[in-house]
Design a protein around this nucleic acid. Structure first.
Length: 557
DNA sequence: TTGAGGTGCACC
DNA sequence: CTTCCGC
DNA sequence: GCGGAAGGTGCACCTCAA
């Protein structure tokens, strides 16, 4: 793994993407089959391969404990190392020690041998599984003979290399390494779901043999956000199809013959979580691959996401649970119908084939589509949005009628439109340093509302880390360091004086924060230097927003 | 044997 | 999922 | 357009003490 680490360091050191790709391509070309397969997966951030349903189940805690057993460092040096680097791999690399007496049969890591250990880890289960995984972690760490090897072995285990490269660039490097067409490599990657298979095919010149297949998940087409209540000029000059934006979980349904499979966005097989959907799909005559959303439904209306949540990650739900929270698959696109793949057809064609060949029923629904002629007015968009909300959905999707299905990409073919629920003026009461590139700034803010207009007690309601520019974070860091009032090394209390406006999509009851509420997707809209702490919002305001949200949802409780 | 707590992860 | 930034 | 940073909820699975 010494060469792997050297390449990663070189990639991390250059911001130029073309140089990253070139350096990476040279390395890939130098590898034999097994190392090539493993190294590509590691670089892509998915050490087992995306189509592998197994999990490593190794997190920071397990790694830390294993490292502690191997190198016996004290807590102080660990926190110093972590504070300096903001990255577990880099921190543990600093604590790396060459053993005093070299072991007789010291193990050496190569990408392939590391992959073999990871495969063992992923296969562990049952009693003492945690101990076996921890032991395998130790074995990996002991097999590291340099600091840099240690850093990258740990980064591979945590799934985050942080060298300014992810799958997109790795695919470009694969194309460059073996002189293949970059588009062909991308296409193969979305069909294979495993970068290791792609790199080998690229080397052998057999990329075109990797094809979309029934039963193997395909990347989901993604949408870009569109600003709410703008002039919607993005829509000019094309015809669009509007869908409701469903607040559930995105899913891909495959049917071939009697076999039905459901996949989540991360390609996990979720058929056993939603058996009523699987049986509804099985009743269809046609074979298909469909794109849609699993939504909690009642009386023809969508329920908010929180209703669906207890059903997630739960296999074989009881009849009572299925009855209490009925789930439905709402199909809004067809990737394949019958034997034919439709990714290169237009959305308009795919939608009409979908409506013509499938019959909704039970837990299977077809999403109603609304056509927008060229140059749709903002008023029409507003009406469609309001109607979608009226049906219990989160917002609106606008999709170019002539768009192909582009798996795994976020483009301008699909736009999503949603509205923040509200904003709250809060005061920052505690701050925390970030991770990675934010290790040396205070970027994570815990904020609070006032108990009431009369009582100036502050009740925390959430944390946010996004919305400020780097420059603002830098300024705030200085201020917070000068106005700290609490202990703690990574997290500490600060004078409650910085007022921030926080936007959010959902408010919910929660035991996490003393206010009794928590926010979904909190983000800092702006600093409010014009506001004093006694002018921020109160718990009454929070409760009012919560009640209004429930009323608007039109769902009891 | 049970249940609380730790840990990891998958959804948004 | 979200937002922003820097390349 | 990509990569990096990181909130909140709730389930599965394992560990360990009673």
């Amino acid at each position: 793994m010494i060469a792997f680490a050297a390449v990663c360091d070189a990639v991390a050191a250059t911001p130029a993407t073309l140089l990253k790709i070139e350096r990476l391509a040279g390395y890939l070309r130098s590898l034999g089959r097994d190392d090539l397969n493993a190294a590509s997966r590691f670089l892509g951030g998915d050490p087992l391969g995306a189509s592998d349903a197994r999990r490593l189940a190794i997190g920071g805690r397990t790694l830390l404990n294993a490292a502690h057993r191997v190198w016996a460092f004290d807590d102080e040096s660990l926190s110093t190392a972590y504070r300096a680097t903001g990255d577990l791999g880099e921190a543990l690399a600093r604590l790396f020690r060459e053993p005093a007496a070299p072991a007789l049969f010291a193990e050496t890591l190569t990408p392939a041998s590391l992959a073999a250990i990871l495969d063992e880890i992923a296969s562990v289960g049952g009693a003492a599984a945690g101990k076996k995984r921890a032991y395998a972690c130790e074995r990996i760490l002991r097999a590291c003979h340099t600091e840099r090897e240690t850093a990258y072995a740990v980064k591979i285990l945590t799934g985050d290399l942080r060298i300014g490269l992810r799958e997109g660039f790795v695919l470009a490097a694969i194309a460059a390494a073996f002189g293949r067409d970059a588009a062909a490599v991308r296409r193969a990657a979305m069909a294979a779901g495993d970068i290791g298979a792609v790199v080998l095919a690229a080397r052998e010149g057999t990329l075109e043999r990797i094809e979309l297949r029934f039963g193997s998940p395909i990347g989901f087409m993604l949408a870009s956000p569109m600003a709410f209540e703008s002039s919607y000029r993005e829509l000019d000059g094309a015809t669009w199809i509007a869908d409701d934006k469903y607040d559930g979980i995105r899913a891909q349904a495959h049917k071939r013959g009697t076999e039905v499979r459901l996949f989540s966005r991360t390609f996990s097989d979720i058929g056993r979580t939603f058996p009523e959907i699987v049986s509804a799909l099985a009743r269809q005559a046609a074979d298909f691959i469909l794109d849609g959303e699993i939504v909690a439904r009642r009386d023809g209306r969508s329920l908010p996401f929180r209703y669906l949540q207890p059903r997630l990650q739960r296999n074989d739900p009881s009849a009572g649970m299925q009855d209490e929270i009925p789930a439905a698959f709402v199909a809004f696109d067809a990737i394949a119908l019958g034997r034919e793949f439709l990714v290169d057809r237009t959305l308009a064609e795919r939608r009409s084939l979908l409506a013509a060949q499938l019959a909704p029923g039970g837990a299977f629904e077809l999403a109603p589509a609304f056509a927008l002629e060229a140059n749709a007015t903002p008023e029409l968009v507003r009406e469609l949005f309001a109607a979608a909300r009226e049906r219990g959905n989160e917002g609106l999707m606008l999709k170019r009628a002539d768009a192909p299905y582009v798996p795994g990409r976020r483009g301008k073919w699909w736009l999503k439109l949603k509205r923040e629920l509200s904003t709250l003026d809060c005061v920052v009461v505690a701050v925390e340093s970030g991770h990675g590139k934010r290790a040396n700034v205070l970027s994570d803010y815990t904020f609070a509302v006032r108990a009431s207009a009369e009582r100036d007690e502050l009740l925390t309601i959430g944390k946010a880390y996004t919305g400020l520019t780097d420059a603002e974070i830098a300024t705030m860091t200085e201020w917070f360091l000068e106005h700290r009032i609490g202990g703690g090394r990574r997290t500490f209390a600060v004078e409650p004086a910085i007022v921030v406006e926080i936007a959010f999509d959902i408010i919910q009851k929660s035991s996490l924060h003393p206010s009794g509420y928590a926010l979904r997707f909190p983000r800092i809209v702006r600093l409010r230097p014009d506001k004093r702490v006694d002018e921020i919002d109160t718990l009454d305001d929070v409760e009012r927003i919560y009640r209004e949200m429930l009323e608007r949802e039109g769902v009891e409780r």
